[in-house]
C-alpha cells in the first residue's frame, strides 16, 4: 500500500485473548460445494481458527452434530458467530446457545442493522458486547471502521476488534483504506482482524501490509472455482503481506528517483561538450 507505517511494534505472533494463534488467516466453514471441499480448504489455508454458527435443527435430523464432528476432526479452534441476529437480545441468546454447543466462550458478535449492506448496528453491537462480556464471553465484535465505535467496544472489554473491509460477500476488498489505516494507527496494540468483504488474495495482502493482524475469509475461498487452491493462495498472500509489514514498506513519493546510481553514467554530459 502507499503509506509506510513506523517500525512495527507488534509482536511476531498473534495473541487473541491470551491465546497464541499460529495462523493469521481465519476461515469460515459456510458455502462450500461439499464437506470434503470445506475440510480440504481449511487444511490448505493453514487456518487455526474457523468460524461456525447455530441454526434451527429440524426434527429428528440431528444433522448439526455431524458437522461439528467434522470440524472437530480438523483440530482447529472454533469461533461461533451470531450471524443473522438483528437485536442485542437475539445475539445474546444465540451467543449463549453457541457457547453451550461448541464449548467455547469465544464469540464472533454480529448484530446486523441493514438488510442491503448487512452493516453492523454499532449501537446494538455495543449493547450486546457489554452484556456478553459481563457473562464471561470473549467477544470478537464484527464492526465497521468507525473509530468511536471501536473506542467504545475497547472500553466495554473487547480485546480484539473485527472491522469490515466491505459488506459481507461482496468481495470488493478494502472499501475505505483511509479509514482502515486510521483505525490501525489509532489502535496500535489492539489485535485488529479484517472481517468480510475480501475478494482476492491481493486484498488480503493489502490489509496485512497496512498492519492488520489477521484476515477472516469465507466467500472468497468457498465460492472460488477451486476453493482448496484459493485457500492456499490466500495463505501465501497473507504471509507475504505480513512479512512486508514487518520488513517496513518504503514511503510512496510523487516524483521519480533513479534506482540505478547516477554517478559514473557513461556518456553523461557528452552532448554539452
Amino acid at each position: 500500500m502507499n503509506t509506510a507505517l513506523p517500525n512495527p511494534r507488534t509482536p511476531p505472533s498473534l495473541t487473541l485473548y491470551g491465546v497464541s494463534v499460529p495462523s493469521r488467516l481465519l476461515l469460515g466453514t459456510a458455502l462450500y460445494p461439499s464437506p470434503k471441499v470445506m475440510t480440504d480448504a481449511v487444511k490448505a489455508s493453514g487456518a487455526s481458527i474457523v468460524t461456525v454458527s447455530v441454526r434451527r435443527e429440524s426434527a429428528r435430523a440431528n444433522s448439526g452434530m455431524g458437522f461439528f464432528e467434522l470440524v472437530r476432526s480438523l483440530n482447529v479452534r472454533v469461533m461461533p458467530n451470531t450471524a443473522g441476529c438483528r437485536t442485542p437480545r437475539e445475539a445474546i441468546a444465540t451467543a449463549h446457545m453457541a457457547r453451550e454447543l461448541f464449548a467455547t466462550d469465544w464469540i464472533k458478535l454480529e448484530v446486523i442493522g441493514n438488510d442491503d449492506t448487512l452493516q453492523p448496528d454499532l449501537f446494538g453491537l455495543l449493547e450486546a458486547a457489554r452484556t456478553l462480556i459481563a457473562d464471561g464471553f470473549k467477544v470478537f465484535p464484527y464492526t465497521t471502521e468507525d473509530l468511536i465505535a471501536a473506542e467504545r467496544l475497547r472500553e466495554a472489554g473487547c480485546e480484539v476488534l473485527m472491522p469490515w473491509a466491505a459488506p459481507i460477500g461482496t468481495g470488493r476488498g478494502l472499501a475505505n483504506p483511509y479509514a482502515l489505516r486510521s483505525l490501525r494507527t489509532y489502535f496500535p496494540d489492539t489485535p485488529l482482524i479484517i472481517d468480510a468483504g475480501i475478494g482476492a488474495p491481493s486484498h488480503a495482502a493489502a490489509a496485512m501490509e497496512m498492519g492488520f493482524d489477521a484476515v477472516l475469509l469465507n466467500t472468497a475461498v468457498a465460492r472460488a472455482a477451486d476453493p482448496t487452491r484459493m485457500a492456499a493462495a490466500f495463505a501465501a498472500a497473507i504471509a507475504a503481506g505480513r512479512s512486508a509489514f514487518e520488513a517496513g514498506l518504503m514511503e510512496m513519493r510523487d516524483t521519480a528517483t533513479p534506482s540505478t546510481p547516477v554517478a559514473g553514467t557513461p556518456f553523461f554530459g557528452l552532448d554539452k561538450s
Binding site: A30, V52, V54
Partner: peptide, 10 residues
C-alpha cells in the same frame, strides 16, 4: 421455543 444445533458459518 428455539432448538438449534451446530451449522456452517462465516
Amino acid at each position: 421455543v428455539e432448538i438449534v444445533s451446530p451449522r456452517q458459518g462465516g
